[in-house]
């Protein structure tokens, strides 16, 4: 492996490998993550994709990938990664393909699959210590079908299946911890708005073997209700308010890669999005806003203790 090469923002790639012309929405935070990651992983890759927004990345006869891709189904994209990894190993072992034809296997799913239907397949892939990378683009709902709530939906968010003024009554599932509890080689959270942190994590995981998993928060103009030009701003606010902690798990330990000393109030993040507008209009719902803030504060007070 190449080793760490990206230390500064200036060293991020400025020519891009993922093809243009995809049917993702304008301002898609998930596509932003994917293209940043693809710049580093490159074309010697095969993606196994689950049903979700990104099923449509490859629509006959168009594909944005320089490398390869296999569409599977919503529940079993990690199982396809297993099949391909094993098949490539067999082909290499039996010398039916040259070593240069090997590929990195990457599973690409949305939160609907990662947090829900595909969780069993992911868990099992980790049990089997599958050598693969998993990227979940998390837009906090079933985006491809019109943003119904999923188990990644945050508390109080309006979705197509939680339309009342209270929004989604549940709380976002802690997939990072569930994944990390399997003790895989690597787990991290990323976001497109923090490309240096993302690039360094992708470089780090490339030096490891075994299951390496990423959850990328994907601000979604369509599903969350904001102007597409705000994708990066909202992403950055997710980090600055502490609602999306950037962290990584390896060697049995979780470390926060970005600790914001003075976290901005979460309402700065919430009020830019239609899905939380009911917390501010027609009148401010102080109780709910305070509740969301308190959960973030509680998270960080624990997290900083644990890190140090």
């Amino acid at each position: 492996m190449a080793g760490k090469t990206i230390r500064r923002l200036q060293e991020l790639p400025s020519t891009h490998l993922l093809g243009t012309g995809t049917p993702m929405c304008a301002g898609c935070g998930g596509l932003e993550i994917l293209h940043e990651i693809y710049d580093i992983l490159g074309p010697k890759t095969v993606f196994t994709n689950a049903a979700g927004c990104m099923s449509l990345l490859s629509v006959y006869p168009y594909t944005p990938f320089r490398g390869s891709w296999l569409y599977t189904a919503m529940a079993s994209a990690p199982a396809a990664a297993q099949g391909i990894r094993d098949a490539l190993d067999i082909l290499l072992e039996k010398k039916r393909i040259p070593p240069g034809d090997d590929l990195q296997v990457i599973t690409l799913t949305g939160d609907g699959s990662a947090y829900g239907m595909g969780l069993s397949a992911t868990s099992a892939a980790m049990d089997r210590n599958l050598d693969f990378i998993y990227l979940c683009y998390d837009n906090e709902g079933y985006g491809n079908t019109g943003q119904q709530y999923s188990s990644a939906t945050p508390h109080a968010a309006l979705t197509a299946t939680s339309r009342t003024s209270h929004g989604y009554p549940g709380y976002k599932k802690d997939l990072f911890s569930i994944w990390a509890a399997h003790r895989p080689a690597y787990v991290a959270t990323v976001i497109g708005a923090e490309p240096l942190d993302l690039a360094q994590k992708v470089e780090a995981l490339q030096e490891l073997q075994g299951p390496r998993l990423l959850i990328g928060l994907a601000p979604c103009p369509t599903g969350w209700g904001f102007d597409p030009s705000l994708t990066v701003k909202i992403g950055r606010l997710a980090v600055e308010t502490g609602i999306w902690p950037l962290k990584e798990y390896r060697d049995d330990r979780t470390v926060h890669t970005r600790i914001v000393r003075h976290r901005k109030p979460v309402e700065e993040y919430l009020q830019l999005q239609d899905r939380f507008r009911h917390l501010f209009e027609p009148e401010r719902n102080n109780r709910e806003i305070a509740l969301i803030q308190a959960r973030i504060d509680q998270y960080w007070s624990k997290a900083i203790d644990a890190d140090t």
Binding site: T48, T72, A75, A79, A80, Q82, G83, I90, A124, D127
Partner: peptide, 18 residues
């Protein structure tokens, strides 16, 4: 595998790999 759904997925994916 962890299920037949995953089993057939892996089977198809490996076959598609050659």
């Amino acid at each position: 595998m962890e299920s037949e759904h995953a089993m057939i997925t892996a089977a198809g994916a490996a076959s598609a790999t050659g």
